[in-house]
Design a protein around this nucleic acid. Structure first.
Lengths: 241, 241
DNA sequence: TTTTGTATTATGTCACACATATAAAAGTAC
DNA sequence: GTACTTTTATATGTGTGACATAATACAAAA
């Protein structure tokens, strides 16, 4: 009889570099290393771990790639604060994200805009409002009475909002979302571009600005939700696997 | 007089590996390579670019680190879909994020929870509601009448919400936010843990569930906002640089 | 036809050499 | 002593060639 092999589990198949990387992470924790601390040199690591310089270099290069360490000739290496957004960015640059991931990210953007109302109201300044006012006036002038969906205008207006949030991570996140936004927009059917708002629901940039001036976070959330209606309509109608 | 050199721009100070990496990116775009496509072998790249295998390997390793390519012995390399969240995760694992970044990320989480109401209402299922009901009942039982802030309970409940969003990126994002959440929570002063809600404002998990059952997105947003009141209070009171 | 062995091949690891940038030391002028 | 320049030492960056290893294709055996 032929016995089944369902129970036996594969022995872990880590490359030498993988192991070294894990070991390095341990090392950092054990020694409680902080940002700015300098590291032993490559050769010392190699010797201490009993591997070639090639291997330790590859492991360190991984860390350098995700921004955990920086290296300079002669000075050696130091621990640095990783830039999480930059990592994000790098992955996106290669245009290899699948449809689902792009939709997910697009949804994320909608969520952020609706959700960030409290931050805006807590941190808005007089100058912010004035700057936003100028932006809205310019948009209105260019639209010239026609309410058309203009990607350029959208971006200008909403970028300013993100900036007002005073949350750098959020801000940079939005910068990097723009290409995705672009992609989803280009892919948009004509029907969506000429979206008909439900009666009385249309919220213009001017409306949003006015709420930001005199209203409260709650009203702003609902207004933004309606402002983004066409986009919500679009993603919420998708059947997800 | 010593002339200022503010305008002159530094000649590009890119390492050979940097240049090769850029060249590779170009190559991918020019040839319109897609996920799953296989790449020439290291030696061919090295020869074509006129660099050593060491250099091309380091450039490729960077791509491997951010998840743009995968390599296997003998089979060579193929393009893969980068996992943006994983990149994020790796950077966080090293506990090197500064205070500001952590606060930014914590704020992000608050924004997401308030903003994701529409997704929840569009995608909730009968099973989701039942599962959530069980979770709430369990929490209530353990709380035994006392409304204490329990990180464990918070996580269980809110994780389920993220799961209901049916947005995998969002879900994984939250998984990875937990350590940050933990950190910020541990750092919380006792006063915040015993936060007194404004009169009539307290929203329990049960309240949220009920709205999710019979209410609408708008109500849910406001309820969630109040549910998270102590956290909002905390971050919005911070003076940011 | 299915299994098992074998050759091939692209990546993984190694050792060693040399290039290059630069921090630190030594030297120089004032 | 101070300010500046030159030299030197050194850690990372790059190059070369070799061998190890695992995955694949293919042949041989059952």
């Amino acid at each position: 009889m032929k016995t089944k092999l369902s129970k036996i589990k594969p022995l872990e198949n880590l490359s030498l570099v993988d192991k070294v990387e894990l070991r390095l992470k341990e090392y950092f924790k054990e020694n409680n290393l902080k940002i700015g601390d300098s590291l032993p040199k490559e050769l010392e690591f190699a010797e201490a771990l009993g591997v070639s310089r090639t291997v330790i270099r590859e492991a360190l290069l991984r860390l350098r790639t995700i921004g955990v360490i920086q290296s300079k000739k002669r000075s050696g290496m130091i621990l640095t604060q990783p830039d999480i957004i930059q990592n994000f960015e790098k992955a996106i640059e290669y245009n290899l994200l699948g449809e689902e991931a792009l939709v997910d990210i697009f949804e994320l953007r909608l969520i952020l805009e609706v959700g960030m109302a409290d931050l805006l109201f807590a941190r808005k300044t007089e100058e912010d409002i004035n700057a936003l006012d100028k932006i809205v006036s310019k948009i209105e002038k260019e639209e010239n009475g026609n309410v058309v969906f203009s990607l350029k205008h959208e971006i200008t207006f909403h970028s300013k909002l993100y900036q007002m949030s005073n949350n750098l991570t959020l801000q940079r996140f939005q910068d990097l979302l723009l290409p995705v936004f672009n992609y989803v927009h280009d892919d948009m059917p004509e029907s969506a571009k000429n979206f008909q708002y439900s009666k009385g629901k249309f919220v213009s940039h001017r409306d949003l600005l006015n709420i930001l001036k005199d209203g409260n976070a709650e009203d702003f959330r609902e207004a933004m939700r309606n402002h983004l209606e066409p986009h919500f309509e679009r993603v919420l109608s998708l059947i997800k696997a």
